[in-house]
């Protein structure tokens, strides 16, 4: 028997059918979701484009700008800043540790930035060092802002405010209150809407327009730095105005159209980002209220990719416009 055992070739371990853990977790969460929906069924929240204000009294009043309210997107902006600062601190610490190769999270950030830097260098050449910070900052900031919509609690925890077109309120667990489905509309004072504490930053037009303004303005600055006064000839093409009788005038007109194109870039940048992410949040609201169980998970994955792609596209377009500005025609 001993000889048999030693001579016998070792059998390959058969891959057994295992009842994996993860699938049961998924099933458990789906069942829990069903019960949660029976207890408190989700409602389609009140959707508005401008950021919600926490209170009706202004935080401070400035002479030119006017009343200043603290909004939930400003809270999101502060959170984005904090996250980026933490990332910066982690990377800085890892860089100062003197290691040749960064590990862990810092290594991931470094790899991402290296990819971005190489892309910039292959497009912009020796101007890459000037362009790269804008590309990287816009990409990172938009990325963090976009992904914030995936966090549970964002857009769904906040202050209840009395409203004419809201939902009735029901208290649960003793200390919290939630909106529930019900016919309460019309009874002023008894229906409420939710003002979330944190709303996704990219759904605030101020943020996207601000980024677009910075992108376009810095493109002009970098173009001027790289090419000097020649850069302005792109807009005011007076070179052929007197030497070529007809085409010179046409060139001048085309140059003026470049100004329009620069302005339209602001619109394009800001509304592309806002539209994608705002539509994404609305999509999540609608799907969450129509098919409360499981379906929203798939759309969360979709929004994950949309957020990444929009961040990269915003940064990459900025980089390409800047590179074009340095090259000239």
């Amino acid at each position: 028997m001993v000889a048999d055992n030693t001579l016998a070739t070792p059998e390959k371990p058969k891959k057994k059918w295992r009842y994996g853990v993860n699938r049961w977790f998924v099933l458990l969460f789906i069942i829990l979701g069903v019960f949660a929906n029976r207890a408190f069924s989700p409602i389609l929240p009140h959707i508005q484009l401008p950021a919600e204000r926490y209170s009706h009294t202004p935080l401070l009043t400035l002479p030119v700008i006017g009343d200043f309210y603290w909004t939930n997107t400003l809270t999101a902006a502060v959170l984005v800043d904090l996250i980026l600062l933490i990332i910066a601190l982690v990377v800085r610490k890892a860089l100062n540790s003197g290691k040749q190769v960064l590990e862990g999270f810092a290594g991931a950030v470094e790899a991402f930035l290296e990819m971005i830097y190489n892309l910039t260098e292959s497009t912009a050449g020796h101007h890459a060092k000037k362009i790269f910070p804008y590309f990287a900052t816009i990409t990172l900031m938009v990325l963090v802002a976009n992904w914030m919509e995936l966090i549970p609690g964002v857009d769904s925890i906040g202050i209840l405010e009395p409203s004419s077109h809201g939902y009735p309120v029901e208290s649960f667990l003793g200390f919290a209150e939630t909106l529930v489905k019900g016919e309460g509309a019309g009874h002023e004072g008894s229906t409420y809407t939710l003002i979330p504490y944190v709303r996704t930053l990219s759904t605030d037009l101020n943020f996207t327009v601000g980024l677009a303004l910075i992108s376009v303005f810095m493109t002009q600055v970098i173009g001027l730095q790289a090419r000097g006064v020649n850069y302005l000839s792109k807009f005011f093409n007076v070179k052929g105005l007197f030497s070529k009788p007809i085409f010179g005038v046409i060139d001048f007109g085309v140059g003026l159209l470049e100004i329009v194109s620069e302005v339209s870039k602001i619109l394009s940048f800001s509304f592309r980002l806002l539209g994608n992410i705002f539509a994404g949040t609305v999509l999540l609201f609608v799907i969450g209220s129509l098919v409360p169980v499981f379906a929203q998970s798939m759309f969360l994955m979709l929004e994950f990719f949309v957020g990444l792609i929009q961040a990269v596209v915003f940064g990459m377009l900025t980089m390409m416009f800047m590179a074009q500005a340095t090259h000239g025609h």
Binding site: R272, I309, Q310, V313, L317, M320
Partner: peptide
């Protein structure tokens, strides 16, 4: 992806 971003806009 860049082209998609433009078309999608």
């Amino acid at each position: 992806i860049l082209g998609i971003a433009f078309a999608e806009a």
